[in-house]
Design a protein around this nucleic acid. Structure first.
Lengths: 145, 145
DNA sequence: ATGTTTGCAAATAGTTTGCATCCAG
DNA sequence: CTGGATGCAAACTATTTGCAAACAT
């Protein structure tokens, strides 16, 4: 379990050539406190209480930067245009982080994954989907060049 | 494997109280041909070739309707506002189809799922994520009322 | 000093809504 | 006929871009 300290954050910023600004620190602290999956707007609202002068753009841009650094993640697919899947059968997805392609695949084992006990009863599951993220073959080709 | 015929589509429309219009049929045929995961815009462009008078709104609205019918799916999360996940550790998601909540959970077994042989080599996987879709406990409560 | 970051404003993109007209049932 | 569906336009919402001023290094 990697530890998440302010110092570690500063180190990482340096490693990425990013300056340490009060705004970045405020955003860093806010996002670590949020246990749900907030939008930029929600984070902005919270931060404003302590930092009334911060702008929404800074929050939004910084979150995107933090995601690039790998400090946080963007919840899959959100923010993109809506895409439809003509395949109504149960199936799983390969997702290319480079080009954004989504490739369907089928797998019996994945369809039949066991639902963890902690979840049974609390949450009623009606679909299991496995998403494998990575780099598709054509992007791998392109990266070689 | 359920079969996808025009007749079956018409049946389903009737079952949902939806009228059978030339536009619906065109959209139905187009979406079945698309093996990738198109946006409404992309489907609209394709349909226009054969049906130059169709409007984008009709395409978009019909796709949403087809998704409600369960005829097609919407790719997870897409079209929503962007949401961030402060948790950079590998973890999995519970997704409530009612209220849209995303709940993190951890599971060792899921982290270590075997990558299907067909995929190894073709696609380089660097993250495995399991998404369990269903209804969260608080929405289950609300539905009882 | 200087190059990045910020805050503001404007532009863009995507989605949704309202409504008059049209058409399937 | 009649209610749902369509097409157009306008309204919204979210996201991105450009740029001058401010700031970290």
């Amino acid at each position: 379990m990697e530890k998440r300290t302010l110092d570690e954050f500063k180190e990482r910023c340096k490693a990425f050539g990013l300056k340490i600004t009060p705004q970045r620190i405020a955003i860093y602290q806010e996002i670590l406190n949020s246990s749900n999956h907030p939008s930029a707007e929600a984070i902005y609202r919270n931060i404003r209480e302590a930092h009334p002068n911060i702008s929404f753009d800074t929050v939004n841009r910084t979150l995107l930067t933090l995601a690039e650094m790998g400090f946080i993640q963007v919840v899959e697919g959100s923010g993109d245009v809506r895409r439809f899947d003509s395949n109504a059968e149960p199936h799983h997805h390969l997702r290319c982080n480079q080009c954004g392609a989504i490739i369907d695949f089928y797998n019996r084992k994945y369809d039949q994954l066991e639902i963890p006990k902690e979840i049974q009863g609390k949450f009623s599951v009606n679909k299991i989907r496995v998403v494998l993220e990575g780099i598709c073959s054509s992007c791998q080709e392109n990266l070689k060049e």
